[in-house]
Amino acid sequence: MSEIKEIIKGCLAGNRKDQELLYRRHSAKLYAVCLQYSGNNEEARDILQEGFIKIFENLGNYKHEGSFEGWMRRITVNTALEKFRSRNSLYRVDDIDQMPEPDAEPDNQDYAGLEAADLLEIIRELPPKYRMVFNLYAIEGYSHKEISEMINISEGTSKSNLSRARVILQRRVGSFTGIKKRIANG
């Protein structure tokens, strides 16, 4: 039996040491996902906590088919979705024209110079509705039809939000790399 199966078995038996072990192994990766789906750290922490509680509650349903980490990630994303739906009406979409213009259009090398932390920070600056659509489409790989059902919007709105998210991201990356270049050039 693989070690992860033993840990899952221990968790199912209520062994708190195994539960903590599972958390320690996977929390950092799942917390990064939570940050990706939330605009502030408190919300990310809430998603992580609720997600892990669901993971522990539903461990018995995991069939050991496919990636266990992928299974946990799906639960975490679903938890973020639930949180989003509960607050959806509170989110307003910022006017895209108010976003600062980039110093220059980012090219391939600009992306290459960005670290994962930079990308996460940029993605978290997106308005919540744009961020959710971009995450579900670009990162998780859902279709617009699926996204429309998930967050109760039309397919057209999903496409529109994605398009606007990309524009904002492009501008942010441009501004970001422009600053880096200026600093590098003294």
């Binding site: 922490r45 509680i53 522990f56 990162i139």
Partner: peptide
């Protein structure tokens, strides 16, 4: 752009706040 974010954030990890586990536990 999609790929840049997808691949850039793949396997990215951030340690959660210390009290998160206590709350879960």
């Amino acid at each position: 752009i999609d790929l840049a974010f997808r691949n850039g954030l793949k396997d990215y990890e951030v340690l959660p706040p210390p009290d998160a586990w206590m709350n879960i536990d």
